[in-house]
Structure formats: C-alpha cells, structure tokens
Amino acid sequence: MKIFVGIDDSRRLDGGGAGEIVSLLTRTIDEKGWGKSAIPSRHRLYPHPDTGYRKHNTARSFSAEVKEQYMEELIDYACVMIKSNGTSDSNSGLAIAVPERMDNTDELIDYAYRTKETMINSDEALAMAKKPGLYIFELSGNGKGIIGALAAVGLRMTGNDGQFRGKLQLGTGEGYIATVKEIIEKSHIEQVKNMDFENLGTEESVRMGEKVKVVLLDHQYTLMVFPTDRQHPRWQTSTTNMLRIF
C-alpha cells in the first residue's frame, strides 16, 4: 500500500542531518524489503518565531509502497532513529498517511498549505491525527514536531511542493547539453518546465548547470530551466537561487 511519511526537522544546532536521516530511513525500507521508497523531498513551512529562532522551518517527506505486514516494524524503527538523532531540546515528530484508509485527503492538503502561510498549533495537528489513515508520533520535546511532520506529508501528497534531495547527474556534468528527450530517457526526470511553468518539447536543448536540483510538480520529478537567450542551447537548468521558491 502507498504511504506518505513526514519528519519534522529537528536537527542539532551544529549537527547535520535532517536530510540524511530521512535518506537513511528510505534506504532502510528498501534494504529490509519492507517496500520501495521514492526520493525524499524538503518542504518549506512558515517561519514562525518559535521555530525560526531555534530550528529550520523545513520538514522532510517521502512516499513509499510498503507491504502492510511491515508497517509496525517500519514505524518502530523510524521512531527510534529520529529520537536517537535528536537532542534534549529538539521537538521532533513523525507523521504517516495511508491515503487508501483516509476518508478525505482535502483536509490534510488544506492544513498543509496553511502551514506555509501562517502559524498552526499542535492542537490542530492532533485533531487531524484523529482522522482515519493518519498517524502521528510526538517523539521529543514539546510535541510541536508533529505540526511540521504532518504538513510535510500533506505537501508531498499535493504533488506540487518541495525540492528533492540530491542532485541530478547527466552526461559529463556541468556544461553538458542534452535534449529534453535524453533527460527524460536517461534520468528519473519526468518533465522539464520553464520558470513560467510551461512544459518544454522533447527536442528542446538544455545545458546542465553545476548543481542540478529537481522539484515536485504535477506529481512528477520536474527539472526547471530558464532561457539562455541563445539559439542553442535555448535553456539552462535553473539555479539554486531561482529554485528557492520551492
């Protein structure tokens, strides 16, 4: 069955790691044969003062196809791993959604979008968790980690938010020119869009930049590009700065 997993960003101040933790969890799911995970994504949330001064206003998420009999083991493992990577002052949380058990995904998606625009309290997240198909775990601190964890689940579920972990490598790397067709055939990219969110045709050419990031749009792995103002290649992969909106 398909699940969406959200993890609050509860890293130590001088430690690394929220992205690494979620990557480790996806690898474990695959290696233990519990199921197959998609690439994790990072989602930006509202920079509320309580969070802004202590931690990042981001949360991580991924989707996975898991075998139902391994769900309990997966949850236990995730809880232990997230707890062990936190500190006494972190407020970490885990959320899992099982869409096929949910009556209505719209409420979760509405909640998730609001976490980007305004402050949400943990009571609202707890109320959401009483609905079928949603499971949340307050793992440390004041329990506020569930707000971001649940938001990440909802944002991933929209199929239109967040940036994927890792960088796209194609051909010889920076400076390599590929057609959209080649990009789609030789990588996990499913569509290429310009910054006006228009899809490029398969014969359009794109120059790969130094750090090529992939975003989630239309439920697809999406490569964003901008015009070079030349005939060939007409497009270049969008920069880190341009992609900060995701």
């Binding site: 929220a18 960088k167 750090k211 880190t240 700065n241």
Partner: peptide, 9 residues
C-alpha cells in the same frame, strides 16, 4: 548547510 537547505548560488 545541507544541500537541500541552500538558497544562494
């Protein structure tokens, strides 16, 4: 920071 937290080129 971690690469997926970067915003500046």
């Amino acid at each position: 920071d971690e690469e997926d937290e970067l915003v500046s080129d």
